[in-house]
């Protein structure tokens, strides 16, 4: 079963991190991703640029509306994600708890909806 692990954290924290610590954190992420690939759980995963780079788009009355920024201001922002294959929620949670971002932020674990017509 597939689970999306969404990493929410205060992005300011990231930006204010001294370079040495940021480098160490990135190395941790690298090691974590490598271990996921090795165990076969990894499907995809990326860090995201800060919300300042976000653009929101919607269609209303057939018209496209494009605006700057995320749709809501929150204390914690989506900073990255992993899509993993896990046998159940326990395994997904165990993987999520190993994400370095779980220590400063929090990880939302969501099962992926499987529809019969989803192409594999």
């Amino acid at each position: 079963m597939k689970y999306l692990l969404m990493i929410y954290e205060n992005e300011k924290g990231w930006m204010e991190l001294p370079p040495a610590e940021a480098g160490q954190l990135l190395a941790e992420y690298g090691a974590f991703t490598a271990s996921l690939k090795k165990s076969g759980n990894f499907i995809a995963g990326h860090g995201l640029q800060p919300t300042a780079t976000a653009t929101t788009v919607s269609i209303r009355d057939g018209k496209r509306l494009t605006t700057d920024g995320p749709f809501a201001e929150t204390r914690e922002q989506l900073g990255g994600f992993y899509l993993v294959d896990a046998k159940n929620i326990d395994e997904a949670v165990a993987i999520a708890s190993r994400i370095p971002g779980a220590r400063a932020g929090r990880i939302e674990v969501r099962p992926v909806a499987e529809f019969d017509n989803t192409p594999d």
């Binding site: 159940n88 929620i89 326990d90 674990v109 099962p111």
Partner: peptide
Amino acid sequence: RDARIPYIIPDEEM
């Protein structure tokens, strides 16, 4: 059912 909470006795570690 949907998030697949397993029907098991947790292993020693947990």
